[in-house]
Structures are given as structure tokens and as C-alpha cells.
């Protein structure tokens, strides 16, 4: 989630690399913010940054753990159904499919029913 710098608190995790205006890296993705970082970011004039919010999950899933096999196979089924009319293949489609699978797995893992909230 993107937060204005005055809403960011020490202890939060940076979700994506933070750069200054000269495109120099200030903080790498995954860094846990300290009071000193926040001061530096403000000094550099950074107005807002992306931080990890509980439940939102990073790209690798809620806690960075791989999904259990039953969730993965449910996600695979879901994605296959969704893509059933997409018969052609290309590098772009493959990448999107992978993203969809990851997204679906995180979604299924986080929903208590295992069915997800989306309607059929």
C-alpha cells in the first residue's frame, strides 16, 4: 500500500525499492524502516512510499511461504478455467498466467472457505 511519508511508521516493511530524484537507491525492497530512515526519506523529499500491509502479502504470498499443494492445485484449476478460451500462447501470456496463478493461490490461501470471494 502506498502511504504518505508522514503516515509511515518505524517497523513497517518497504514493499518496493525507494529511489531519490536522481534515481539513486535509498532503500531496498524488504527493508524494515527505522526512525533514521524516515528522517532520511523526508530529507530527500520523498513524499510517499510503498509499504507491506498485513494481509495484502508480498508477491510471494502472505508470509513469503509457498502455498500448500492442495491450494496450488485449486489455484491451477481456477486459472485453467479462466484461461480456457486463450488458446494461443506467447511470452506475455505465460507471464500473466504465472501472475494469475500466484494471485489465485494467495487469494485462496487467505480466504477461510478456500473458495475465494469472487462469484462464479
Amino acid at each position: 500500500m502506498r502511504l504518505a511519508i508522514d503516515k509511515v511508521e518505524p517497523g513497517m516493511e518497504v514493499m518496493s525499492d525507494v529511489f531519490n530524484v536522481n534515481k539513486a537507491l535509498l532503500l531496498p525492497k524488504g527493508a524494515v524502516l527505522t526512525e533514521r530512515h524516515l528522517k532520511a526519506l523526508k530529507t530527500w523529499g520523498v513524499e510517499a512510499i510503498n509499504v507491506v500491509v498485513a494481509g495484502e502479502g508480498g508477491p510471494s504470498g502472505a508470509a513469503g511461504q509457498p502455498a500448500p499443494p492442495e491450494v496450488l492445485s485449486a489455484a491451477e484449476k481456477r486459472v485453467a478455467e479462466r484461461f480456457k478460451h486463450v488458446t494461443a500462447t506467447s511470452p506475455a501470456i505465460e507471464i500473466i498466467k504465472k501472475l494469475a496463478l500466484r494471485h489465485s493461490a494467495v487469494h485462496l490461501q487467505n480466504s477461510p472457505t478456500g473458495q475465494g470471494s469472487a462469484k462464479p
Partner: peptide, 28 residues
Amino acid sequence: ALEFGNSGEMLLSPLVPQQAGDQRLIED
């Protein structure tokens, strides 16, 4: 594909290939 909301269509329509000569949209 990433299930953001729901437009009333859950299935993907085929992705049309980009036309030759179009400014490239995606690194494919």
C-alpha cells in the same frame, strides 16, 4: 486474469496479438 473485481465475464477472451507497425506496448 488477476481477478480484480468482476465485469460480468469471468473468462478471458483471447489476447489479440499486436499489429505489426504498432508502437510496442509490451515487451513480448
